[in-house]
Amino acid sequence: MLIRRALFGLLLASPAAARSFAERGVAVRGTDVVAYFTEGRVVRGRAEHAAEWDGVRWLFASAANRDRFLADPAAHVPAYGGFCAWAVAQGYTAPTDPHAWRIVEGRLFLNYDASVQRRWERDIPGFIARADLNWPRLNQAG
């Protein structure tokens, strides 16, 4: 797990990892990604607590959440650039709904919608394994 986490962090830090799902340049539709981890729920970010990272604007509910994110972005960004985890497991990318989320082994995963998330939940470990294999190729396709 530590090796996968370290590899994930390296991928995020590299210029090749710049492919991400963002609408109008804003990540996760303006949702505070730190709040998924600290509050266990979807929390809307605010423009006054924004940060630019990896070519995308990230919004946070508080300055403390923004600072926590900037101290360790790899610990908070969604897997697969914020694209749908189930879709990446199938070999393509799709947008996501911030309300269709789950944290698994310290990683934030998003899905297209609640219906797709239910499908993904039938075999989370299997879909993560497939998506982890597919993501490097899909990440380069952007």
Rank of each mutant, 00 (worst) to 15 (best):
residue 13 A to L: 11
residue 13 A to K: 09
residue 13 A to P: 07
residue 14 S to D: 13
residue 15 P to I: 13
residue 15 P to C: 11
residue 15 P to N: 07
residue 16 A to V: 15
residue 17 A to F: 08
residue 19 R to Q: 12
residue 20 S to W: 00
residue 21 F to S: 05
residue 22 A to Y: 04
residue 22 A to I: 00
residue 23 E to I: 06
residue 25 G to E: 06
residue 27 A to D: 03
residue 28 V to H: 00
residue 29 R to W: 06
residue 31 T to V: 11
residue 31 T to C: 09
residue 32 D to N: 09
residue 33 V to E: 00
residue 35 A to I: 02
residue 35 A to L: 09
residue 36 Y to P: 00
residue 37 F to T: 00
residue 39 E to K: 14
residue 40 G to P: 12
residue 41 R to Q: 14
residue 41 R to K: 15
residue 43 V to R: 08
residue 43 V to Q: 06
residue 44 R to H: 08
residue 44 R to P: 01
residue 45 G to V: 03
residue 47 A to I: 12
residue 49 H to D: 08
residue 50 A to P: 01
residue 51 A to L: 11
residue 52 E to D: 12
residue 52 E to V: 05
residue 53 W to N: 06
residue 55 G to P: 09
residue 55 G to Q: 06
residue 58 W to L: 07
residue 58 W to H: 13
residue 59 L to I: 03
residue 61 A to K: 03
residue 62 S to K: 09
residue 62 S to Y: 08
residue 63 A to F: 03
residue 63 A to M: 04
residue 64 A to C: 07
residue 64 A to W: 07
residue 65 N to M: 08
residue 66 R to E: 07
residue 66 R to Y: 05
residue 67 D to H: 09
residue 67 D to T: 04
residue 68 R to D: 06
residue 68 R to P: 01
residue 70 L to G: 05
residue 72 D to Q: 12
residue 75 A to M: 05
residue 76 H to R: 05
residue 76 H to L: 09
residue 77 V to R: 01
residue 78 P to N: 09
residue 78 P to H: 05
residue 79 A to K: 03
residue 79 A to T: 07
residue 80 Y to R: 11
residue 81 G to S: 10
residue 81 G to K: 03
residue 82 G to Q: 09
residue 83 F to Y: 15
residue 84 C to S: 14
residue 86 W to V: 01
residue 86 W to Q: 06
residue 88 V to K: 01
residue 88 V to E: 01
residue 89 A to G: 15
residue 89 A to V: 04
residue 90 Q to V: 06
residue 90 Q to S: 08
residue 91 G to S: 07
residue 93 T to I: 11
residue 94 A to C: 05
residue 94 A to W: 02
residue 95 P to L: 02
residue 95 P to F: 02
residue 96 T to Q: 10
residue 98 P to G: 04
residue 99 H to E: 14
residue 100 A to W: 00
residue 101 W to K: 02
residue 102 R to K: 15
residue 103 I to Q: 10
residue 104 V to Y: 12
residue 104 V to M: 06
residue 105 E to W: 11
residue 106 G to I: 04
residue 106 G to M: 11
residue 107 R to Y: 03
residue 107 R to C: 02
residue 108 L to F: 05
residue 110 L to R: 02
residue 110 L to H: 05
residue 112 Y to V: 04
residue 112 Y to R: 08
residue 114 A to T: 06
residue 115 S to A: 14
residue 117 Q to H: 15
residue 117 Q to V: 05
residue 118 R to N: 14
residue 118 R to I: 06
residue 119 R to I: 15
residue 120 W to G: 00
residue 121 E to P: 01
residue 122 R to V: 14
residue 124 I to L: 15
residue 124 I to Q: 15
residue 124 I to M: 15
residue 125 P to L: 11
residue 126 G to C: 13
residue 126 G to Q: 13
residue 127 F to Y: 15
residue 127 F to N: 02
residue 127 F to A: 04
residue 127 F to L: 10
residue 129 A to C: 10
residue 130 R to P: 03
residue 130 R to I: 03
